[in-house]
Simulated scan of single mutants.
Amino acid sequence: MRALIVEDEFLSRKVLKSFLMSLFEVDIVVNGREAIEAYKLAAEEGKPYHLVLMDIMMPEIDGIEALETIRRLEVEMQVARSKIIMTSALDDPKTVLKSFHEGGASGYLVKPVDKEKLFKELERIGLLKQ
């Protein structure tokens, strides 16, 4: 399985990769624009991402906009819907609702993300069997 980490903070990228590398082939990008490009390329190559961990607050294109664009691409390109978990330092109910209801997120984690919370979320969305 493939995973894409979308995170502008170096330490968060490194920690998330260490959590996922035993379960997924992991790619990393640093903003929403790169996430859209990586997602599109992976789908075109016939190797779509099963999981995307997407930070919400990033430069260039934020995570919510990137999420909405990826959901449109899935329909246009007729690829299976990826599980997309949004991550944010903000525990703001408005942001959570927007991620789920408008963007179609699969999950939401508040940073800092720890391994136990991440694995519980992966299990909840069907990407990890415990």
Rank of each mutant, 00 (worst) to 15 (best):
S18H: 02
T69Y: 13
P93M: 08
Q78D: 13
I36C: 03
L51Q: 04
V110G: 00
S82W: 09
M1A: 13
I64M: 09
S12R: 05
D92H: 06
G32T: 06
E116G: 00
K111S: 08
P59F: 07
F24Y: 12
G63L: 09
G107E: 09
K111A: 08
A43Q: 05
Y39I: 03
R81K: 14
F10E: 13
A80Q: 12
F10H: 13
F100H: 08
R72H: 12
L20Q: 05
L20M: 06
L20A: 02
E9L: 11
Q130K: 14
R124L: 08
G46H: 11
K98E: 14
I28V: 15
G104D: 03
K111N: 08
E76P: 04
D92L: 06
L122Y: 07
A66M: 06
V26M: 06
D62Q: 04
I5R: 01
I5P: 00
Q78E: 13
P112Q: 10
L16T: 03
I36E: 04
L16M: 11
R13V: 04
V29A: 04
V96T: 08
L109F: 05
E9I: 13
E121N: 12
T69S: 12
G104N: 10
E9G: 05
I56Q: 06
V6E: 02
E45H: 15
I70E: 00
I84S: 03
S82F: 06
T87Y: 02
A3W: 12
I61P: 02
D92K: 11
A38V: 04
E9M: 10
L109H: 00
E68Y: 04
A35F: 10
L73W: 09
F10N: 12
F24K: 07
V79L: 03
I125N: 05
F119D: 00
V26F: 09
E60G: 01
R33Y: 15
E65Y: 00
Q78K: 15
G104A: 10
L128G: 01
K111Q: 10
L41Q: 15
D114Q: 08
K98V: 10
P48L: 08
E45Q: 15
L41K: 15
L67S: 01
S82V: 05
M58F: 08
L41T: 15
T87P: 01
K17E: 08
L51S: 03
E45K: 15
I84D: 01
D8H: 10
A38K: 10
M58C: 04
L90H: 13
T69K: 15
F100G: 00
A89N: 08
L128R: 09
G107F: 12
R81V: 07
E68P: 02
S82Q: 07
R71D: 04
R2V: 13
V113K: 00
I125H: 07
T95K: 10
D92M: 04
R13C: 13
V75C: 09
E74D: 02
